[in-house]
Design a protein around this nucleic acid. Structure first.
Lengths: 150, 150
DNA sequence: ACTCCAATGTAGCACAAGCTACCTTCCAGT
DNA sequence: ACTGGAAGGTAGCTTGTGCTACATTGGAGT
C-alpha cells in the first residue's frame, strides 16, 4: 500500500480536521438556505413545513434553525409567515448551489449512478476545497467536451 | 394566499437530502479509531495527549470521546494509561483507512495538490457511498497505469 | 361570523462535542 | 525517596441539533 503513516496524517495540530460543532453549524446554514431557495423556486413560497419535509426533521428543529438564520440575516420572516431569503441569503444559496452542482455533475461524469450521486454530493459538497472544486469542474468540462459521462 | 399543495412533494432527483445528522457520532468514532491506529504505528503507543494534538481539540474532549469508544468496545484503556484498539477497533480502523486512502489518492490523481487533498479527504471520506468509492478506486488505478498522477 | 385543524411557536429534555478551571496521578530527575 | 511538572481525569458551562408534548394562530369551509 502506497501510503506511509506520516505522509497523509501530518501532525499539524488540528488543521486537517474540522472543528466539528462549529463547522457543522455553517454547513447547516448553507443547506437550509439552499433548501429555501429551491422551495421558493418550486412552490412560490417556503414554509416551515416545507423545510421540515425537505430536511427530514421536525418543524421544531427547523424553526430553531430558521431563527438562527434570521439572526445571521440570511432569511427574513415573521411568525406564521413564509420564509424568504435576504440578499445575503440569495448570495449564499447561489454559491452553495454552484458548488453542489459541480460536485454532483462531477460524480455523474465519474460514472456514479444518479441515485447515489445525489446523496453523496450532499455530503461531499461542504468538504471540497477550492483546488478540488476547480479540478472537479475541469473534469466535468473535459468529459462534456469529449462526449457523455465517461 | 391559498396554498393547495399541502401534500408532500418528494424531492426531485438529484436533490435527495442527507440523512439524520446523528450519523455524526459514528463519523467521529471512525476518525478517532483511525487516529489511534496511526499514532500507535508511528509512536508505539497512543496517549490522550497525542490524540488531542492530532485532532486539534482539548484533552477533555478526547477523553470523553475515548470513554464512548470504550463503551462501544472499539478501544481498551485504563486511567492514565495508553489507548489500544480492540479487534473491532482494528477492523474499523482498517476499513476507514482503506476508504481514506482511496479518496486521498483519488484526489491526487485528479490533480489536487497534496496539501489540500489531505484535509479534503478527511472531510469527504465519510460521505462517499460504495459506488462512488468504487469509481474513485478505478480512476486511481487507471491513472497509475498510464503514468504518475499528472 | 365561527369553528376546526394544519401549521407554527414554545417549553423542556437528551446528547454530542467544544471549552476553562481545577484536581489527581505518574514518573523522571535529583 | 521525594517531588515538581506534564499528563490525564472531573465538574460544569455553552452551543447545535434532535425529539415530544402542549399552546397558539390563521385561514378554509361551513
Amino acid at each position: 500500500m502506497a501510503r506511509t503513516w506520516t505522509q497523509t496524517r501530518p501532525n499539524r495540530p488540528g488543521r486537517a480536521f474540522r472543528k466539528v460543532r462549529t463547522d457543522h453549524a455553517a454547513e447547516t446554514a448553507q443547506d437550509y438556505v439552499e433548501a429555501v431557495s429551491d422551495i421558493v423556486h418550486r412552490n412560490g413560497v417556503c414554509r416551515v413545513k416545507d423545510l421540515s419535509e425537505h430536511m427530514g426533521v421536525s418543524h421544531v428543529t427547523v424553526s430553531r434553525i430558521v431563527a438562527r438564520l434570521l439572526d445571521e440575516q440570511l432569511v427574513e420572516t415573521e411568525p406564521y409567515r413564509p420564509i424568504r431569503l435576504t440578499a445575503r441569503g440569495e448570495q449564499l444559496a447561489a454559491a452553495s448551489r454552484r458548488r453542489h452542482d459541480i460536485v454532483f455533475r462531477f460524480l455523474l461524469s465519474l460514472g456514479v449512478p444518479g441515485h447515489e450521486a445525489g446523496p453523496d454530493a450532499e455530503g461531499i459538497e461542504h468538504h471540497v476545497g477550492d483546488a478540488t472544486l476547480h479540478r472537479m469542474a475541469e473534469h466535468v468540462a473535459g468529459c462534456e467536451e469529449t462526449g457523455a459521462a465517461r
